[in-house]
Computed example of a mutant assay.
Amino acid sequence: MIRHSLFALTAAFGLSACTSQPDYRAAETAPPTVLQVDLTRYAGLWYEIARYPNSFENNCAGVTAEYVQRADGRIDVINTCHKGSVDGPVEVAKGMARVMEQSGNARLKVKFAPSWVPFAWGDYWILHLEPDYSAVLVGDPSGKYLWILAREKSLDAGTLARIETRAEELGYETGPLEMTDQG
């Protein structure tokens, strides 16, 4: 059974600018993103490998994010969380992303709130992308949010270390990253 309860509501406002989420990035300048993202290759299912702690993913396991290109150029975003364990009840948050101009498709704005809510767009920046699109580092420039995603439920230690090193090079703390239970 899919529930759209508190997970969807908190995700709707979780990326908004008016949050008390801690910053895990001290740098004053925005981090560089990857130069170019092929959105057709980026679309599809991603498994969350690690994340910064955040209120809208409390007690979530088996987390996935699915991106579906739309005819209008926007992207549907479907985030899934299993509460408590990978076998726990499923909660789904549906949102939408739009590409920021002149970003090579690497800077997006994501919104999980209803269309009538004007200020709920959050930054979704692609900070590192494996050449074969098998893993990605995504975050916001403030350091409030950071995720490592992969096409498979697990990521080899070498790739994970390389992505964490890239995060550190960009000024993000990696100590707060929580590994996601994918079962």
Rank of each mutant, 00 (worst) to 15 (best):
E66V: 05
L45C: 05
T40L: 07
T80H: 01
F7R: 06
G104V: 09
T10L: 15
D23Q: 14
K83F: 11
F7M: 14
K83R: 01
F7V: 11
I163M: 10
S16I: 02
G122W: 13
A50L: 02
V37H: 12
D38M: 12
R3K: 01
M179A: 11
P141C: 03
P118D: 05
F56E: 08
G104K: 12
E168K: 15
W116Y: 01
E169V: 10
A11F: 07
A8I: 06
P32Q: 13
V34A: 14
R162A: 14
P31W: 06
G122N: 10
M96V: 14
Y47H: 10
Q102H: 12
W125G: 10
P131R: 08
G14D: 10
L177T: 10
A61M: 11
T29V: 10
A97L: 15
G122F: 08
A27K: 12
I2T: 02
Q36K: 11
F56S: 10
A8E: 15
I78Y: 03
L149S: 10
R25S: 01
A61L: 01
H128T: 08
G171P: 07
F13N: 03
H82R: 14
H128Y: 13
C81G: 04
Q21K: 02
A150C: 06
E169R: 15
V86P: 03
A106W: 01
P118Q: 09
R74Y: 02
G104Y: 11
E66N: 13
F7P: 07
D23L: 12
V99D: 13
I75T: 11
L6H: 08
W147V: 11
R162Q: 13
A150W: 03
E168M: 13
L160M: 12
D23H: 08
K111N: 12
I2W: 00
P114A: 02
G14W: 00
L108D: 07
I2P: 01
W125M: 03
G44W: 00
E57Q: 15
A11D: 09
N54I: 02
N105S: 12
C18Q: 09
T29R: 08
A61C: 14
T33K: 05
T165Y: 14
L129Y: 14
L35N: 13
L6C: 06
T174W: 14
D123M: 06
R3G: 11
I163Q: 06
Y47T: 00
K94L: 09
L129Q: 14
L149K: 07
D23W: 06
A30P: 03
G62S: 06
D87F: 08
T165M: 09
D23V: 06
K111E: 04
A65Y: 01
S85G: 12
E173S: 14
M179Y: 07
S5E: 15
R107C: 05
V34I: 09
T40R: 13
Y145L: 12
L45D: 06
H82A: 00
S85R: 06
M100H: 10
K144D: 05
G44H: 05
C18H: 05
F119H: 06
H4Q: 05
Y172R: 15
T180Q: 11
L39C: 08
S154F: 03
